[in-house]
C-alpha cells in the first residue's frame, strides 16, 4: 500500500487460495473499473493480463491474498500480498518454462511457467518479495500517463 496523496481511486479485494471457480473475478472487476474511468484499451489490457496471471498464481499456490488496486493520474498499481508457501528461488521462478504446477492447474490452462514472465512483460515495473513459508508480495505498476 502507498500513502501517495495523488490517489484518485483505491479499492481492496481478497482472493482465496484454491478457489478455482472464482479465479479471475478480481482482474475482470479491475478491468471494468479502468474501462469506466476511460483509460485506453491497450493500457487496460496490460493491467488486466498482469493482474489475472497474478490472481491465478494466488489461487494456485497461496492460502489467501489481499489485493490493493490504486489509480493516480500517472500510475496504476496492483499489489497482491499473499499468505502461503512463498517462492524459494525468485530468479528461477521468473524463467519462462519453469513451473511447479500440478496436473489440476494444467487442466485449467495454466502451469506452463508463463505466469511471472507474462506479468513482467505487461508491467512497467514489477517488484516481487517473498519469504518461504510466509508469503509473497507482488507489486505491479503500469504507467498511466503514456
Amino acid at each position: 500500500m502507498s500513502d501517495d496523496p495523488e490517489i484518485m481511486l483505491r479499492e481492496r479485494f481478497s482472493i482465496q487460495g484454491g478457489d478455482f471457480g472464482r479465479a479471475g473475478r478480481v482482474s475482470t472487476t479491475i478491468k471494468s473499473m479502468l474501462k469506466q474511468i476511460g483509460f485506453p484499451a491497450p493500457l487496460i489490457r496490460r493491467v488486466a493480463i498482469a493482474t489475472y496471471e497474478a490472481e491465478i498464481n494466488v489461487v494456485v499456490y497461496a492460502d489467501r491474498a489481499d489485493v490493493t488496486f490504486e489509480v493516480t493520474p500517472t500510475v496504476i498499481r496492483v499489489i497482491l500480498e499473499d499468505e502461503g508457501r512463498g517462492i524459494a528461488d525468485l530468479d528461477l521462478a521468473m524463467q519462462e518454462g519453469y513451473s511447479t504446477a500440478t496436473d489440476e492447474i494444467r487442466e485449467m490452462g495454466f502451469g506452463a511457467g508463463m505466469g511471472l514472465p507474462n506479468i513482467k512483460r505487461n508491467a512497467d515495473d514489477l517488484e516481487i518479495t517473498s519469504e518461504v513459508g510466509v508469503g509473497t508480495t507482488v507489486r505491479i505498476t503500469v504507467l498511466a500517463g503514456e
Partner: peptide, 16 residues
C-alpha cells in the same frame, strides 16, 4: 480452444 472451463472465458475477456 479445446479448454472448456471458466478460465477460457475469463482469459478471453482479459485478453480482449
Amino acid at each position: 480452444t479445446g479448454l472448456t472451463n471458466a478460465q477460457s472465458v475469463n482469459t478471453a475477456e482479459v485478453a480482449d
